[in-house]
């Protein structure tokens, strides 16, 4: 009887353990987060002195300006949708109405799970806030990753630097890019972005510096000349990531891959993953 109970407990833990553990640890993590934000920020403000007041005033003005811009964007989006409808240019992905509540702000509770995997972050919003598995996560600077697991109050974010991540993307070629053939006539080149994880600076010797490996864009057409510092954005192909989110910038010119049929290049992420405090989760309506 005890053996059957133990086996049942094991099976239950293997299937629901992650869910239960994340929810059990959430109050403590959230408490620590709350303490850091409320008490820590007050202590910092003591040392910041009068600059905090002027910064507060500037931020209020910035928020008011952004509200105005948001309202204007909603009007433009409405007009754009109406005109597209009149021209018959509607595509399935374009019919989503503009919403200012599409992005859910989520604080980062902890990094790296229990063993320190740098590509995993735990966020303080879950299914109760409308977060779903697979949702896209971004910040104003660019794309951050996707939600891998969701519990009622927390969610697990997998960064785009994770080696298992693939993102359909476009390389912006700009107006003055070289190349003379048909492919170059388009201002975008399609490619697939691969995450390459994190490591210390030198893998062969002891080093305490901790860096994010550059991402890599692959499968770009061979004939296209990619400019240096070209911007990489999500292409929306595949339907996983929405179109137009900034991913990063090409570090230097691309080179041919091992087959020499296509080219690839290293990409510097647009987001500084180590300094993130809040992220925005896209709500799928």
């Amino acid at each position: 009887m005890a053996f059957v109970g133990a086996v049942l407990a094991l099976v239950l833990w293997l299937f629901c353990g992650s869910y239960i553990a994340a929810e059990a640890v959430y109050p403590v993590e959230n408490g620590a987060n709350w303490f850091s934000r409320h008490v820590g920020s007050r202590i910092k403000s003591l040392f910041a002195g009068s600059s905090a007041f002027s910064e507060n005033k500037r931020l209020r003005e910035e928020v008011a300006r952004l509200r105005m811009a948001c309202a204007e964007s909603a009007r433009v989006a409405d007009e754009n949708r109406r005109l597209r409808g009149m021209l018959g240019l509607d595509r399935p992905g374009d019919s989503v109405p503009f919403s200012t509540n599409r992005w859910i702000c989520a604080p980062i509770l902890s990094r790296g799970a229990a063993v320190g995997n740098p590509c995993v972050l735990r966020l303080g919003r879950g299914s109760l806030a409308g977060v779903k598995r697979g949702a896209v996560v971004a910040v104003p600077e660019g794309l951050v990753g996707r939600i891998a697991n969701v519990t009622p109050n927390t969610s697990e974010l997998r960064l785009i630097t994770d080696p298992s991540t693939r993102v359909a993307c476009d390389v912006e070629l700009g107006g003055d890019a070289g190349g003379d053939d048909e492919a170059q006539s388009s201002s975008l080149a399609h490619g697939i972005l691969y995450g390459r994880g994190h490591s210390t600076v030198a893998s062969t010797e002891a080093s305490i510096l901790y860096i994010v490996h550059p991402l890599r864009v692959r499968n770009v057409e061979r004939q296209i000349v990619l400019p240096q510092r070209a911007k990489i954005i999500t292409s929306g192909l595949g339907g996983v990531f929405p179109r137009g989110l900034t991913v990063g910038f090409l570090i230097d010119g691309a080179h041919g891959d091992e087959t020499n049929l296509e080219q690839e290049g290293d990409v510097e992420p647009a987001v500084d993953f180590l300094s993130l405090e809040n992220v925005f989760i896209r709500r799928e309506d």
Binding site: L109, R111, G112, A114, G116
Partner: peptide, 22 residues
């Protein structure tokens, strides 16, 4: 146990290593 698990997650990941509080 829960406090140890939370501390293990929260303690800064210095070069990716965590303190095995549990």
């Amino acid at each position: 146990l829960v406090a140890a698990a939370a501390m293990q997650e929260l303690l800064p990941a210095f070069v990716g290593a965590k303190t095995p509080m549990l």
